[in-house]
């Protein structure tokens, strides 16, 4: 948990300092002449609060007793499965626009279900196609969501 907290604190510190730097360049109240704080004030205030919370997190992590320091599983069989799924989904999203919803989604479902369920590929294909068609029909015909405005079969 200590390492996790330190990584979180580092990300938050970089984020808040970055926002303060960028927002400091925005117009100020004086530029508008109305007494209204400029667009940079609010993000700066929140970033300072974020920085304060980060400092508290660092302090509490530093003071954390060894018996409270639980281990975070980031490279177990389960988490590796999650990372691979994330990778598959990222590729799916990249292919979604050029190829279209029906084909990519059927392939995605087929890959994931076959991987997890290890069924007969023919059965897996039927299940994948069924899920895709049900979702497609519900959104396209019942809810009028234009999910066929991109891809190979643009209507």
């Amino acid at each position: 948990m200590k390492k996790g907290n330190l990584v979180l604190a580092a990300i938050c510190a970089v984020l808040s300092i970055g926002i303060i730097v960028v927002a400091s360049g925005y117009p100020t109240a004086a530029d508008y002449g109305t007494g209204v704080p400029g667009p940079g004030l609010w993000p700066i205030v929140i970033s300072i609060v974020l920085l304060g919370c980060t400092a508290i997190l660092l302090y509490r992590t530093w003071k954390m007793k060894p018996e409270n320091d639980t281990k975070i599983e980031l490279w177990s069989t389960g988490t590796r499965r999650v990372y691979i799924t994330m990778g598959i989904l990222a590729i799916y999203l990249l292919l979604l626009e050029p190829v279209g919803f029906l084909i990519t989604t059927t392939v995605l479902e087929f890959i994931l279900i076959q991987w997890f369920a290890k069924k007969n590929p023919a059965i897996t294909f039927v299940i994948s196609a069924a899920i895709t068609l049900v979702v497609y029909s519900a959104f396209k015909f019942l809810l009028n969501v234009p999910i066929d405005t991109f891809g190979i079969f643009v209507i």
């Binding site: 479902e109 994931l112 969501v145």
Partner: peptide
Amino acid sequence: VILTPAIFVLCIIGSFA
């Protein structure tokens, strides 16, 4: 094993909609 992949698709189409 079937429900979770279906949830992924619902998340994707739901955020697109």
